[in-house]
């Protein structure tokens, strides 16, 4: 397990999943805007979309830091 976690493949998989999360976040925001619009009841969906994009950003930043160290 430890070797897997330290491998570059694992780091790439994490940034890949992060990219998927960010993509899902963008889709969530787009669908919320087009179906519900800017209404108060859509707030949880907006925060969900933003959190997914933030997760993608965190993963990408981690990957960049790991690569610069290597």
């Amino acid at each position: 397990m430890r070797n897997v976690v330290r491998s570059e493949g694992y780091a790439r998989a994490r940034v890949g999943i992060g990219a998927v999360a960010a993509g899902l976040g963008a889709v969530t925001l787009y669908r919320t805007v087009t179906t519900v619009g800017f209404k108060l009841e859509a707030l949880p969906a907006y925060v969900l979309g933003a959190a997914l994009i933030a997760l993608g950003y965190v993963r990408w930043r981690e990957y960049r830091t790991a690569r610069s160290r290597a």
Partner: peptide, 20 residues
């Protein structure tokens, strides 16, 4: 800090996604 931020976001996403 690295692992906590990921953990916080993951848990928040699951909770909001399940409830929606």
């Amino acid at each position: 800090p690295r692992t906590s931020i990921s953990l916080i976001l993951t848990i928040l996403i699951f909770a909001l996604a399940y409830s929606n």
